[in-house]
Design a protein around this nucleic acid. Structure first.
Lengths: 347, 347
DNA sequence: GGAAATTTGAGGAACGTACCTCAGAAAATC
DNA sequence: GATTTTCTGAGGTACGTTCCTCAAATTTCC
C-alpha cells in the first residue's frame, strides 16, 4: 500500500495535524519539525494523493479564455479546441468559459478583464494584441491574484505569468529553411501578413529573413504586404504583385486568409507552380495542402495548446511548478505526406 | 455548484442507494426506475466526480511497460520518458513498472508476459517484434482481462487493444518527400535499417519508396542495408557502398545507429555534403542536426508517447472511451531551425 | 522562575462517491 | 389474498486529504 499522511505522522513521530501543516506550508511549525517530517516523507516515498486532496479542498477552478471575435478558421479551431479541453477537464473540477472581445477595440477588452476577478475567475488565458491599455489591465488583474497566460502571441511587456504557444521566431526560421531548400535556386518570395497579432507576425518575419539571408542569399524575400484580415485587400494586393513581379517563385503567408490566397493563385493559373508556405492547419489549409495548392504548413497542435492552457492555469492558480516538457508547444511542419488524420480534434 | 448524487436522488424522487445502483449498473432496479434516474441525471447535467469515485474505490492502477534490453539511445530515451510519466502519474494513483526482455529471445518475453496477471497488473504496454510466440502470449493476456497496447511498432496480428506510435508508412513517405525535395534533381539514396522492429522498418521503407517512385522518379533509392543494430556492421557496409557508388547523394537511416553513421561519413570527408535523413531525436541526432551532419530527423514526441501510454492503459482498464485526438502521436519533422530546446523531457 | 509566545496534539467534520447490510415496500405469482 | 419474489430506502463506513478548534505541551523572554 502507498503511504498516507498517517504513515508519515507515525514515522516522523508527530501528529497528523503537524504533517498537514508541513505539507500545506502552513505557519506555526518549528524548522526542526519540518525537517523531521520531510525526512519521513522522503524515507517512505510518500506522494500526495491529488484526487483525495482536491476532493477535500472541494475547490473548483473557473477559468476564462479570451479570444478576439475574428471569425478566421484558426480562431474558430482554437475556440473549438478550448471548448473540448474544457469539457474534458470538467471531471477534474475545472470549468472553462470562453469570452470574445471586438478585435479592434482594446478598451472593450480592458473592461472585460476588469470584470474578471469579481466573477470568481481563478485564471485567464488571453489572445490579444499588445496595447498599452491591455498592459495595464493585465497588470491590475495579476495584482488582484488572478494569473494570466498569453495564448498564441506573447505579451511579454504585460508581465503575464506564462506564454503558451510556439516560438514564432523559430517558426519563421523554419519557414525560411523550407522555402530556401524547396526553391533550390534563386527566386523572389512574396510575404503576406495580417497585422492583428503584431508580435507574432514581426517575430516570424524576423526569423524568416534571418535564415534566408544567412543560408540562401539567392532567395529574395519582398517587403511584407499587410492585409489586415481582409480577403478583398489580400486578393487585390497579391494579384497586383504577382502580375508585376515575374521573379516571384514562392509565397510565405504569415497570417490567415488561406482561402483567399489559394483562390487568387488559382485564378491566375499558378496553382502548384509556386512554393507556398503558410501557418496554421485549418480545414482549408488541410484541403489546399492535400490538393497541392499549398506546399507546407507550419503549425502548432491546438489540442495540445488548449490542454496545456488549462494545465498551466491550474498550476498557476495552485502555485505549483510546471512540467515544462509537457507544456512546450512544438513547431510542426506539415506536408501532404504527414498530414494528420482529420479525426484529430485539433484539426 | 455541480449536482451530486444526492441532488439526483432528490430530483428523481428515489433514494441515494438506488441512484448508486443505477450509476454503477448494479442489479435489482426496475426498468422504470432506471429511466427515472437517468432522466434526472440528464436534466441536471450530472457528471460523476471521478476523483471522488476513484478515492472511494480506492483503486490503484499498476501498469507494466516492457521494452527490449537494447541499449540504443532511442530505447533509453523512451525508458526515461516512461519513467518520468510514471512519476507524474503517481499522484493520480497510477504506478508504472518498467520491464526489459532479452531482445533476441521471444520465449523469455512470453514467459514474462505470462506472469503479468498474477502480479496484479491492470495493463501492459509492449514494444517487441511480432513473433508467433508473442502473438499467443498477448492473446492469452487479453483473455485474462489485461489490456495490452503496442508501443512504437504495431502488433496488429496479436489483437492488441491499441497502438501508440506514429503511422510508420506515413513517416516513410514524409522522409521520401523531404529527400526528394532536398535533393532537387537526380541522385541515388542509400537506405539503412536495423531489423529488430521488423514491422516499422518495412512500413517506413514502403512509404519512402512510394513517394520517390511517384513524385521524384529521378531519385533512385538503393536496396536496404540491414545492420542488425551492430555499429561495426553499419560502418563497414556504409563505407563500402559510399566508396563504390559515386551516385549516392543522400542517406535514409530508418533505424538507429546515428553515431556510427555520422562517424563514418565524417571519416570519408563527406560531412554536410550528403542529404541525411534519419528517425528519432536522440541526444546524438540532436547534436548531429545542429552541426549540420544530419539534414532532417523524422521523430515522435516521446514525452507525449509516454503520457499517452498511461492514459490509454488507464482508459482501457476502466473501459472508458479515448480522446483520439489527444492520443494521436504526430509525425514530427525536425530541422536545425525548429530543434526544440533540450529542456524538453522527451529529449 | 514565571509569564508570554510559540508549537504541537487530539479530534472531528467535510469533500463526493462506492459499497455494504437489513428492513420494509411494492410488485408478481399462484 | 396470501405468499413469494423483486425493488427500494435508510443508514452506515470507508477512501485520503484539508481545515478547523481548543487544549496542552514546549520554548522563549524578561
Amino acid at each position: 500500500m502507498r503511504p498516507t499522511v498517517n504513515d508519515i505522522a507515525r514515522e516522523a513521530g508527530v501528529s497528523l495535524a503537524t504533517v498537514d501543516r508541513v505539507l500545506n506550508a502552513r505557519p506555526g511549525v518549528r524548522e526542526k519539525t519540518v525537517t523531521a517530517v520531510n525526512d519521513a516523507i522522503a524515507r517512505l516515498g510518500y506522494v500526495r494523493d491529488l484526487t483525495a486532496a482536491n476532493l477535500a479542498r472541494s475547490r473548483t477552478y473557473r477559468m476564462a479564455a479570451i479570444l478576439p471575435d475574428t471569425e478566421s478558421q484558426f480562431i474558430q479551431s482554437l475556440a473549438a479546441a478550448l471548448q473540448e479541453a474544457g469539457q474534458a477537464a470538467a471531471t477534474s473540477r475545472v470549468e472553462l468559459v470562453l469570452h470574445r472581445f471586438p478585435a479592434e477595440d482594446p478598451h472593450a477588452l480592458a473592461a472585460l478583464l476588469a470584470g474578471m476577478p469579481g466573477r470568481g475567475y481563478a485564471g485567464v488565458a488571453l489572445m490579444a494584441p499588445e496595447t498599452p491599455v491591455l498592459r495595464d489591465a493585465v497588470r491590475s488583474l495579476r495584482t488582484k491574484g488572478v494569473p494570466v497566460v498569453a495564448l498564441v502571441s506573447d505579451l511579454p511587456t504585460t508581465g503575464r505569468d506564462h506564454f503558451i504557444g510556439v516560438d514564432n521566431r523559430a517558426a519563421g526560421r523554419t519557414a525560411g529553411v523550407l522555402m530556401g531548400r524547396f526553391l533550390g535556386t534563386t527566386g523572389q518570395v512574396l510575404v503576406l501578413g495580417s497585422s492583428l497579432l503584431a508580435r507574432d507576425m514581426i517575430e516570424r518575419r524576423r526569423g524568416f529573413d534571418e535564415v534566408l539571408l544567412r543560408d540562401f542569399p539567392a532567395v529574395e524575400p519582398l517587403p511584407s504586404l499587410e492585409t489586415h484580415g481582409s480577403s478583398r485587400l489580400l486578393r487585390l494586393a497579391v494579384a497586383e504583385r504577382l502580375a508585376n513581379t515575374p521573379g516571384i517563385r514562392g509565397i510565405y503567408a504569415m497570417g490567415d486568409g488561406h482561402r483567399a490566397l489559394t483562390q487568387v493563385i488559382g485564378e491566375l493559373g499558378l496553382s502548384g507552380k509556386l512554393t507556398v508556405i503558410c501557418h496554421e492547419l485549418t480545414p482549408h489549409s488541410r484541403q489546399a495542402l492535400s490538393s497541392g495548392e499549398i506546399t507546407a504548413v507550419i503549425t502548432q497542435n491546438l489540442g495540445h495548446l488548449a490542454r496545456s492552457t488549462l494545465r498551466v492555469l491550474r498550476a498557476k492558480a495552485d502555485n505549483l511548478p510546471l512540467d515544462e516538457g509537457q507544456e512546450q508547444i512544438r513547431i510542426e511542419i506539415v506536408l501532404r505526406e504527414n498530414l494528420p488524420a482529420a479525426a484529430d480534434s485539433a484539426i
